[in-house]
């Protein structure tokens, strides 16, 4: 199917323009001198300076980062365990409920997840703050991790694990020495997914954050409700830059790894 018609070219061009133009405009206008965001008044980096001087934003950014690192790490451990149980666990009592609880949070509206967790935290008298946001984010992120990891576990040659067990490994050793290295790329992408989901989340964090802990999305949302501001444009640009660099370098690394693997396989085939 290698015939790009004019129609294909047009729809791709327009489609990608639609996807990227809003972000390009946002980035360009973050360097605008004027306070009026839609009128160009010359190049300036003053909004970045103002952003870095804004304690409230810096505090929120720090809280967000802490929550994201903690919750994505916890979610990766729990999600990998859950994936292993789902794919390799065989039958056990309540398996259907378990797999239901893994898939349901993926489609649950955020307002409902947030509301239900808040009611739980209040019910057991847990003070809302960093801890409650971490618990909340871990819960929904572990489901995403488990979906990513279990798709890798499904395509994995089981005889490798069995060989390790036959050669005298305990179950845990076989997991650590054989299974984990093979599923590592999926575990890492699960962690990255959990990390970005946590960085990005507004709704669940709004419900579960107390007055003592405000995350960056909550801060941005309350600023943005009042209208467009150049400071938020500057902040958005920084966030877009970090993500773009992260995603592109991750894909380059994985491309290099797969090339190396191909070379190794070819070398092995020749030998």
């Amino acid at each position: 199917m290698n015939r790009l018609s004019w129609f294909n070219v047009t729809s791709l061009t327009l489609g990608f323009a639609f996807l990227y133009l809003p972000m390009v405009i946002l980035v360009v206008y973050s360097f605008n001198e004027s306070k009026l965001v839609t009128v160009w008044a010359g190049f300036s980096t003053k909004w970045y300076g103002e952003l870095l001087g804004n304690e409230a934003f810096l505090d929120a950014a720090w809280v967000t980062l802490k929550v994201a690192v903690l919750s994505s790490t916890l979610a990766t451990v729990l999600g990998t365990m859950a994936a292993y149980v789902l794919v390799r666990g065989g039958r056990f009592l309540g398996r259907t409920v378990f797999s239901g609880m893994i898939y349901a949070p993926l489609v649950m509206p955020e307002v409902i997840t947030g509301l239900s967790l808040l009611l739980l935290f209040i019910g057991i008298g847990l003070d809302r703050g960093v801890l409650t946001i971490v618990l909340a984010h871990t819960t929904f992120a572990m489901c995403y991790v488990s979906v990513v990891v279990s798709s890798r576990l499904l395509t994995f040659d089981r005889s490798l694990e069995e060989a390790a067990l036959d050669l005298g490994c305990t179950g845990f050793e076989a997991f650590r020495l054989v299974t984990l290295p093979i599923i590592a790329p999926a575990v890492i992408s699960g962690w990255l997914l959990a990390f970005t989901l946590s960085l990005d989340d507004l709704v669940i964090a709004s419900f579960t954050a107390g007055p003592s802990a405000t995350t960056l999305p909550i801060k941005i949302f309350s600023a943005v409700r009042l209208g467009v501001s150049p400071e938020i444009n500057a902040l958005s640009t920084l966030m877009i830059a970090v993500v773009t660099i992260g995603v592109i370098s991750a894909s380059l690394v994985s491309k290099r790894n797969s090339l190396r693997q191909q070379r190794d396989e070819q070398a092995a085939a020749r030998a």
């Binding site: 996807l19 972000m23 960085l199 999305p217 592109i248």
Partner: peptide, 28 residues
């Protein structure tokens, strides 16, 4: 594929916010 996936990794909130400056009365 990567060009389609990339926006998915950037903040949802920021992508919605970007349209506020485009669609407003004096917007782009």
């Amino acid at each position: 594929m990567m060009l389609v996936i990339l926006p998915f990794w950037t903040s949802f909130l920021i992508r919605v916010y970007a349209w506020m400056g485009i669609l407003s009365q004096e917007g782009f």
